[in-house]
Design a protein around this nucleic acid. Structure first.
Lengths: 347, 347
DNA sequence: GGCACTTCCGGTAACGTTCCCGGCAGCTCG
DNA sequence: CGAGCTGCCGGGAACGTTACCGGAAGTGCC
């Protein structure tokens, strides 16, 4: 295979200097239209393609961006990645994707790789809520996810957990569920605190004692949701049990636990999820859940990064609203109560 | 922010020439151990990090690799990406990920981006089975997926559809299902032909007329599987209906169609999927399916690429075996038949 | 002691691009 | 008509690294 043609080859072919050729290729105004056309033709004929390595080296702009997320194989993060990727590609740049697996070591190593590749900026979901190494990260970056709260002075994008929780609780209330049990994430995670705080706010407004709510902790996995639900089911054997889970995987696990316990959903048990993963659409009954705008999250993070780089003002933290997806995992407890109140007024 | 330290800064700090410093940093044998240590210390003190852009420019090895798949948000491809990523990261390199959305234009543009970034090689799932532009791709690459068959002279990795189909058919037979209906992908796709051919082989060996099998076509989506199943259900109203779907999404759609038609799975209807997406584990009943080794596919593709680059011999196309995952979507038709044959011999 | 050989190191030239500076026309204007 | 200005272009330096070459010590051997 022959050597890849360089700008010098193009210049020679077009009969101009390499400076002029470079100017022509980079849409500079300081070149005559006729000359530009001539160079373009020569470039096409030679099969010339700009060497981004050299460009990055000289100009400092590598055209590379980084994304560090916990796991690209996780549907939620894959969706985020897709959003970021789309926007980066629209800017004629490329995205380096890394999975940290919630591991500090790995995250550090990936960040190092990003720096060495001289990416122009990065989007990161920090594995821990309490990182200090980010101060000397040495790169423009945008945080994504709820742990971003620890870094108030760097731009960050997340979903609006407060709005989401209230959305779920309001919907639950409308359906006749007053005080759902909660299956939350591990105590160490910041997202859990935010979730719980929002629940409390909501309860206080409605004169419900937050302490009356059953709370179980799990680890965001299906198995965790399964056993948390088992504990809940034991506590409450007879009445209708409603649970609000902090993510869909645990909700799916909770539904499975109900099934093996012989409790039918939504007849005996109601489950509300949080995330909006595709799998929720295929469970039976379909999982009613609150969807985080994952792809939009990725897009906006990338946008924020570009804005940041361009020196445009940034409004710090941005929270994106979530959306309720009604499927079939919630019982409609209204149909009995209103009828009783109405006293058989209709039919 | 101060200028990033270069190898020259390190050399000055260590009191050696930049050549020596570079040698020390790149584990060259041509440097004294004591000197190497001295340079290492200086590098650490200066906070030096190799500039991969410059390295790539000079040495021709950018440390960058490309991955072009249809959609990173698709769980199957996300898993593939994860596998590739892990292996690339293990080689201290980075992976550029692109989604083509089954669009020629986009694919071409991504490949161009890859060339301009001077990636050392790429893993590609070509959007079309009939591409000609790949001849002048101008980069070392490995194909992934079944469409790779069109390019016999380039290394490729795929799942062993033949083995998978026979695995499914054998299992079906063991469970008492003789001639399942088929829901396949669009006629244009090569994978469909491969699937069908394997079914025929299997039938012929068992003296089943392949023409007796009902075949429906869909587009690999849930909706497609849903309506294909509806057609099948109309054809066959009474007897137990068994369908073998060419992917899990269609299988999930088929299960939903059965449910809305009032047919219970697995009592009235049996569904066998193909892919092994996570969602299949949460449906009810759980989807029995044949799992493609997605992550392994990605790993092996990356491995093949590295081998290829290192000039190691490559055995052309590699097919990875698939695995049966038994969940609950298949009726066990054995329990009745053997009893009848036995003629009430037991109880 | 001279010679070959090894070990280690320094200087210089690339790699392909962009940036800066200077120059040469042609034009305008006092 | 000369000064200044504008539009366009060429030449060279620089970006940070590695490849290559040559040379200075040190070692072993006759």
């Amino acid at each position: 295979m022959a050597r890849r043609p360089t700008i010098i080859d193009v210049a020679r072919l077009a009969g101009v200097s390499k400076s002029t050729a470079a100017r022509a290729m980079s849409d500079s105004a300081e070149v005559n239209d006729a000359t530009r056309e001539k160079v373009r033709k020569a470039a096409l004929a030679a099969g010339y393609e700009r060497n981004h390595l050299a460009v990055g080296m000289r100009s400092g702009r590598s055209g590379l961006f980084g994304l560090v997320i916990p796991d690209i194989a996780n549907p939620f993060w894959a969706e985020v990645a897709r959003g970021a990727q789309d926007l980066v590609a629209a800017h004629d740049a490329s995205l380096l994707v890394f999975s940290s697996d919630w591991d500090h070591e790995r995250e550090a190593s990936h960040l190092r790789a990003l720096r060495q590749a001289r990416v122009e900026g990065a989007i990161v979901n920090p594995v821990s809520d309490s990182v200090d190494e980010f101060g000397r990260f040495g790169l423009p970056f945008v945080l994504i996810g709820s742990s971003a709260e620890r870094f108030p002075d760097t731009p960050s994008i997340g979903s609006d957990i407060r709005q989401a929780v209230r959305l779920g609780l309001d919907h639950l209330e409308q359906m006749g569920h007053r005080s759902p049990a909660l299956i939350l994430g591990p105590k160490s995670r910041l997202a859990r605190a935010r979730f719980l705080r929002s629940v409390h706010e909501h309860c206080l407004e409605r004169d419900i004692d937050p302490a009356s709510l059953s709370v179980e902790s799990a680890d965001y996995t299906v198995e965790g949701g399964f056993s948390a639900m088992q504990r809940l089911l034991e506590q409450q054997r007879d009445a209708h049990l409603t649970v609000f889970c902090a993510n869909d995987l645990m909700a799916l696990g909770a539904m499975m636990a109900a099934r093996v316990a012989g409790r039918e959903c939504p007849r005996d048990v109601s489950v509300l999820g949080f995330d909006g993963v595709p799998a929720g659409a295929f469970s039976w009954p379909g999982l009613t859940t609150i969807e985080k705008p994952a792809r939009e999250l990725g897009r906006r993070a990338a946008e924020a990064l570009f804005d940041h780089l361009a020196g445009r003002a940034l409004d710090g933290r941005t929270y994106l609203p979530c959306r309720l997806i009604e499927r079939g995992s919630l019982a409609d407890l209204r149909v009995v109560t209103p009828l009783r109140i109405a006293g058989g007024g209709r039919t």
